[in-house]
Design a protein around this nucleic acid. Structure first.
Lengths: 260, 260
DNA sequence: TCAATAGCGGACACCTTCTGTCCTATATTC
DNA sequence: GAATATAGGACAGAAGGTGTCCGCTATTGA
């Protein structure tokens, strides 16, 4: 039935490219009879994809709005555009949907053919320059670490501490968090046997993601608390000033911007 | 075979959520035997989705990078994030990939369940405010007109001309173009029987897209030339002066970008 | 080095489903 | 009313899917 399944996907693709298609058009494209097309449409409906039909002249099939999102079938250009906008959103930290955008980006990047990936990368630069965002961090780094979190793979990196002290870390990455306009990695430091919070812009990856690990239970409060605690440790003395300046807890905090 | 097809999609979903899944895990999730899973994997490979497999302990299946993009299966949050970033890109006109982003956005919006659409719309506002973009045009308007172009449906709108003259237009929309940081609609003006180029921020839609029409051959040079010509007509020679004087007419006009 | 665990895939039997080719019904537009 | 859409029943032959049972290979860790 590989052929039937493939055909269903192709029908979905067609219905996403243009709004309405007649049964005959679809049948011609797929090399089957219109009866089969009708049956395919029926199957799609069974699968909860709401295909609407208009009878009479100028009739045809349309993909309507359903309860859930159908699989998105993007062409090359569209994929590149989506990748770029997601990267921009994730790295610039402006929009406040950073984590989710990052998740979507990782999903997309992990299946993007190389030719598209390089196109996205090239365009990325110019887009970033135009936006001129603050405290950006490499999209590369972000997606790599994000994927490692998702897939529970160890990371090795060197960490540039405050006083310029560089140390090597082996970490089991658990979560990426934006705080203010900066990304933090919350992970279990294997050598020290404790939780650690590391700003991404101080991380320099060494090698690719390593072996899998079993995720640990995070201490009470979850990742956000970890970051808050970590941030307090990283910039101890400025904490007061910052807290006094910050009126609204969320967006105001980021405004007064983390770094001296 | 509707069940088999659905299962294939579910396998694809799983492989996009996490990196590696063992055959047993998949089998449990889908309620079939591992033999069937192996056959499903085989089918996916036949469909050119490169599923890699690792043997031995800690083995499993991974969705690798292939020649073409597999259907993207986004969860709710991700879909909203993608929609927002695309809207921002399309409406702000910063990134220079506006047309493509718009195409992807239309594709996405046309299948997004209402609950997601409203979420995207709510968040959109705050995102836009943060970015503080220039010459923005309603995402609503943009996607509606874009969809009408794609589907060859007539549009009726009132057009606010230069001297404050408002006229009603019936147009066969052919293409949306960004020029500078502003959107223009190139279409065939039905009443006047000629091509017209209209800045989107002067359009006020009347009713929803109408009957289908057969696309016409564009004059030599294509849409870009049309826009260039149109822009020249709209702001003939006093472009400089007017730019200095007229801030408030709409909101975006004030910026000095628009004309050479 | 051995044992456990992962994926790989052939063979069989049973059953379901798909496909094309009829056919008629129904809605819509001109 | 004629033309053109979708809708869907019935039939027959072909094709495909599934589970079960089997032995195979590759990888990892003790």
């Amino acid at each position: 039935m590989k052929e039937t399944s493939a055909r269903l996907l192709r029908v979905l693709t067609l219905l996403q490219i243009r709004r309405t298609w007649s049964g005959t058009e679809i049948a011609d494209r797929l090399g089957v009879t219109t009866r089969t097309v009708r049956r395919d449409i029926e199957k799609l409906r069974d699968l909860d994809y709401p295909v609407k039909a208009l009878k009479g002249l100028a009739g045809g099939y349309q993909l309507g709005v359903g309860a859930q999102l159908p699989p998105l079938l993007l062409d090359d250009d569209e994929a590149v555009a989506v990748a770029i906008t997601l990267r921009t959103a994730a790295t610039s930290g402006i929009t406040g949907i950073g984590e989710t955008a990052l998740r979507a980006l990782i999903k997309l990047e992990q299946v993007m053919p190389p030719r598209l990936r390089s196109r996205a990368r090239t365009l990325q630069v110019s887009a970033m320059q135009t936006v001129g965002s603050v405290a950006t961090v490499g999209a590369e780094l972000l997606t790599t670490i994000g994927a490692a979190c998702r897939d529970h793979q160890r990371l090795m990196f060197s960490y540039a501490g405050l006083g310029g002290v560089v140390s090597d870390r082996v970490t089991e990455p658990h979560e990426l968090i934006t705080w203010g306009s900066r990304w933090y990695l919350v992970g279990w430091d294997v050598d020290r046997g404790e939780w650690s919070t590391v700003p991404l812009d101080r991380i320099h990856l060494r090698g690719s993601p390593g072996p899998h690990f079993a995720p640990r239970q995070m201490p009470a409060g979850g990742a956000a608390t970890q970051v808050a605690r970590g941030v307090a440790q990283l910039w101890p003395d400025q904490a007061m000033t910052r807290l006094r300046a910050a009126k609204p807890i969320r967006s105001g905090r980021s405004r007064s911007s983390r770094t001296p």
